[in-house]
Design a protein around this nucleic acid. Structure first.
Lengths: 180, 180
DNA sequence: GTCTATAAAGCGATAGAC
DNA sequence: GTCTATCGCTTTATAGAC
């Protein structure tokens, strides 16, 4: 087991337990590694593990979501693919958005650049794709913000109601509204 | 100091630190009461404190938001007042929604009824107000869900970007969209 | 009703054997 | 690179004085 292989396992543990709830005992069980091994990979401890997880999430979104949006054409296929990717990624709202969850707590201040950068680049990339469809810059930015916020809110509400379909339904309406 | 007076102080502590981050030391400092006094009011400890806080939040929304929406007329003033109340309550996105934050973590399962009930009644009340404007039931429910989710997402995004104006701007657009 | 003292358990982190 | 043992601290919760 090398360091990079542990990151997705740590990510699921942080998503399931939250930053504070993911104790070293939990992280140890999630990876199958002793505490000593984890500290060998991450000398900075839990904070370095969470930073690596956020970087991994950012990298995935950069490749699969942000970059395709930035190079989008004038048809809406890039935005359509974003909705498909995101619906998959969040597993119909059962999997939370870690940068979003961190934004609501103290973690926001500790991981400020990672959290703000993730949302800033998501919104900017989606705004680019909307501009490529001929929408004016200011309106594109506003709509992009509303869609990203709508996705985050859909995770919250669908989880609160324990109704994963609510996430899928909300994303379908966001998609219809933005492609109209 | 009596039990009811501690609840708003505990609420701010839970909002600022999260459920797990709000240790008894934090809650003691927030209320100015020793641990012994807190256990005197809340024999069930931290979990009973959080339950009381959620009940207090629910009660405030029931009075100030849900009930007015249910008895709304055919003009949009009740919905307008909801947006005013909510913008104030969340302090332009600097104050988080505790039921929303709980929905993203393990707390959702511990406080399942309080969390789901809060969102269920908010959505149902807003849907009632939309139906009073002549909107069909299914569409009213969908729009109400989108507005409530949009508010939750606006809190997440505005906090992530550390831009409180983003919350106010998002709510203004949600208001314009729903009253159109 | 409020406090201090304390118990028992869990925490993050480190040391050192292998 | 992985482990176990352990340190020092904080946690929740209780006991008991006032």
């Amino acid at each position: 087991m090398d360091r990079t292989a542990t990151v997705p396992l740590l990510a699921e543990a942080f998503r399931a337990h939250g930053y504070q709830g993911a104790s070293l005992a939990v992280l140890s069980a999630a990876t199958g590694l002793g505490k000593g091994s984890l500290y060998n990979f991450f000398p900075g401890g839990k904070e370095e593990m969470a930073a690596a997880v956020l970087a991994g999430i950012d990298s995935w979104f950069e490749t699969n979501v942000f970059a395709p949006l930035r190079t989008a054409g004038s048809d809406g296929t890039a935005i359509d693919r974003m909705f498909d990717s995101v619906t998959d990624y969040f597993r119909s709202g059962e999997r939370i958005c870690l940068p979003g969850a961190f934004a609501l707590g103290r973690e926001r201040d500790v991981f400020a650049d990672a959290v703000s950068g993730y949302f800033e680049r998501w919104i900017a990339a989606l705004a680019d794709a909307l501009e490529a469809q001929g929408i004016a810059a200011a309106r594109a930015r506003a709509s992009a913000t509303d869609v990203v916020a709508g996705i985050q809110g859909a995770i919250v509400v669908s989880r609160a109601l324990s109704r994963p379909e609510a996430f899928v339904d909300s994303l379908a309406r966001l998609r219809a509204a933005i492609t109209a």
